[in-house]
Amino acid sequence: MTISRMLSTIVLVSAFMAAVSMMGCSRDEPSVGLFLYNEADPYIKEFAKQIMEESGPVFTPVQYDAGNSQLIQNEQLEGLLVRNPALVIVNPVDRLSSHSVLRKLQAAGIPGIFFNREPLAGDLALWEKSYYVGAKAEQSGQLQAQLVMQLFGGEPENLNGYDRNDDGRIQAIILKGEQGHQDAEIRTREVLRSFEAAGFIVEVLALEIANWNRDEAYAKMGPLLKDYRNNVELVVSNNDAMALGAISMMRQTGMFQDSNRNGRIDRSDELWIPVVGIDGLKEAEGSIAEGYLYGTVKNDSLSMAKAIVELSGILLGHIDPSMARYPVEDGTYIWIDYRPFISEQ
């Protein structure tokens, strides 16, 4: 009968459509998520790129950008966790929010690797399959101080020509990342502490907060130079971005000259003062090569990326733990050393 044939056709068509839509849903589930606090941060952008490149042969993480909002990151995490990923790699927006994230991961039984912003040790202890890959913030400040002391001759009693006013003290401007931010606090504290420990007397002309931001550092450097252009002997920045921002403003006021016209900025020039950063951005390396930026402390993101990928490989069962090049300390931490980076001149 025609009617039954028609009915069966309709049923077939709807079944087919249902099947098609089901197939649409059952695409490959992402097994690894890479959560970034903010891709607008060039350091993070580069870091993520390195992770993606390194992970290439082992696995393919799906990248999420939280745009510097923990709320967005929470949502992104929630969205992936319901699909039961094999692993999450998290660069938290807010380190304290990691408390809830870790409990969530523990409840779901999903291992998590944290990087760039360190969750509290107590929170990492909540979940045995949680890890932190990073550098000890103290080290960056210490290395930064060492670079400066090296430039000034290494002897606190006998500063060389970079002590422009020859008063035996170093007049410094400090660009701080973020008031209350763990890294900013530690870096600032450690650099000053290291000077003190070595016997160098550093006189802080100004401590300006520029929120890790290049433009903000550039803007805030203007009024500072108005006051201290003739006194300042050193600019210590919590990161490269702010250091580069400061250099832009300093160049605008006529500092940094190629007086012997060798294509490089001359340190011997009266208007050259050392600026030191932390992170080791590509652009910072360029600036060092040109002679503007004196040096930086490289947050060895490449090694960190390698360590993260290696640890991921182990957790995913792709890599034999006995072959690991980056040892896990206390079952949780992989520490990557900072590396000082300057140009010899």
Binding site: Q70, N74, D94, L96, S97, H99, S100, V101, L120, D123
Partner: peptide, 11 residues
């Protein structure tokens, strides 16, 4: 709906 509160370990 559960969210974290910035700078705290609260939710």
């Amino acid at each position: 709906y559960v969210n974290t509160l910035l700078h705290t370990r609260w939710r």
